[in-house]
Each structure stands twice: as C-alpha cells, then as structure tokens.
Amino acid sequence: MLEIIVSKYNYWIFVFLLIIGLYSMMTKNNLMKKLIGMNIFQWAIILYFISIGAKRGGSVPIIPGGHGHGVQKIVVHATGYVNPLPHVLMLTAIVVGVATTGIALAILVRIYNSYGTLEEDEIMKELGK
C-alpha cells in the first residue's frame, strides 16, 4: 500500500488538492473562499499535467545542433528529454485559469459593492429568496 502511494505520489497530491478544492467550493459560505477553492482545483490539474510530462534526469527538449538545412541527422533518444507537450498545454491552461480568476474577482468586487457582503446567505436574504 505504502509503495503505491510513494511511487505514484504525484497522483496522490493531485487527488488530494482536487478534493480540497471541490470541498471548499461546495461547502463554504463565503464567496471569496469558494473562489480560492476553485483556484486550488484548477492548479491541482495543472500540477498533474506538469508532473506527467516530467522525467527524473530528463533534459530540456531542445535538439543540439538546431534544425534547418544542412544539419546532419542526429539520433534523438526520447527517454532523455522531458515531454514538452503537457507543459505547453498548461501554459494555455494557466492563462485560462488566470482569466477565470480575473472575471470572478471582478464580479466579487461588484457583488461587494452592491450588497456590502460576500457571505452567500446574507446576499440571498437581501435578494429575498
């Protein structure tokens, strides 16, 4: 059991963070805490993607000698390099995450300005529901 946890620790961290995020999104009454939970949730996925691309002892995926015309064929050992694709995907996902946070924060500011609170039950009371 312990071996499974240790050998796949990146997945366990991912699951743990994911559940923390989901828990706070579902149970917290304060909208700001919900937003923080949402961020933890998103970053957990980003960490997971990055960890699957990483390799112990792997090098930067740049082929020495460059590319273009007149470059002689170089044998590429894929095992020596980290997988760049998940990392590149996560650049986009980070941008998406930042944009979500930005929109959510802007809306929270407006909620605070109109209701004077970020507690969900108080806002609901104000709205008469």
Binding site: L31, K34, M38, A104, I107, L108, I111, S114, L127
Partner: peptide
Amino acid sequence: LIASFRYIVMGT
C-alpha cells in the same frame, strides 16, 4: 452578479 458567480463555479 450572484447568478453569474455560481455559473463561474459550476462552469469551471
């Protein structure tokens, strides 16, 4: 605003 925030959480 609050509807939109809930949508953000669910949508995300």
